[in-house]
Design a binder for these strands. Sequence first.
DNA 1: TTTCTTGTTTAGAATTGTTCTAAATCATTG
DNA 2: CAATGATTTAGAACAATTCTAAACAAGAAA
Lengths: 141, 141
Amino acid sequence: MRSSGSKAVTELVQRLRVAGLRPTRQRVALGRLLFAGPDRHVTAESLHLEAAKTGAQLSLATVYNTLHQFTASGLLRQVVVDGAKTYFDTNTGDHHHFYAEDRATLIDIPGDCVVIDGLPKAPVGMEIERVEVVVRLKPRA
Amino acid sequence: MRSSGSKAVTELVQRLRVAGLRPTRQRVALGRLLFAGPDRHVTAESLHLEAAKTGAQLSLATVYNTLHQFTASGLLRQVVVDGAKTYFDTNTGDHHHFYAEDRATLIDIPGDCVVIDGLPKAPVGMEIERVEVVVRLKPRA
DNA sequence: TTTCTTGTTTAGAATTGTTCTAAATCATTG
DNA sequence: CAATGATTTAGAACAATTCTAAACAAGAAA
């Protein structure tokens, strides 16, 4: 019985290989947390904490490295909604976000339900890389 | 000849008073830089540098304080487009932004030309504070 | 004016999130 | 199994921002 990993893990290892990333213990551990279930939003800090809770043994620096590598490989995407922390989103498709400032929490808004009209075209020499909508939420008065 | 200030300065002092802020030398100096001309985007650092160039004598901490006080009073608004620095915008009206990542530069998009449709309503217990659109630009290939 | 009170400024230390460095470790290949 | 090069890591370094408590200045009162 050579391979004791689940199918999900095998697939993850495959994804990493394809991305040119060696499937190290640390990357697999983080990948499982990120990609095993439904889409999610994490910060380096939160993911590091979560990994620690599941018994994984890895440094915060590695979490940062890994998140950036995953992002560069298109497995993750960065979301900027707060000056302080950087969020990473496992949903790399076209979509937007609610951001509850008081809870520092993100909620996805599917891209296919939102229509944005009337945007001016990009200045000369520039082109649009992406259009991001952030809907800031506050507790109802 | 008691009052040697220009009309613009008098008006600025008035705005500060209304906002409950004493028109100190520092606040007036920063206010002139911010509100004398057309709308603009600054960071604490950039404004501090600019103030220094015009001969104003004030600390970076004061620039931070002032930017936050101005924001709290509705004279400025914060724009989050980059994890690293915080931008402040003298245009507090309804509008959006182009953001050229390579130049770390903001350009206003008038709010009245953009229509956003299909946004889901806010989760229960929450209400929408503001809808922000950021159009990320990259140099044309 | 002068004095009093309170708001404001400031230098410098402290914090926070993130990146860097160089040495140790691990994964893969031959 | 050894060699090679990628990866991890602890800890230092960094950058933006906030905090602190002491000095200072603005407006009100006398």
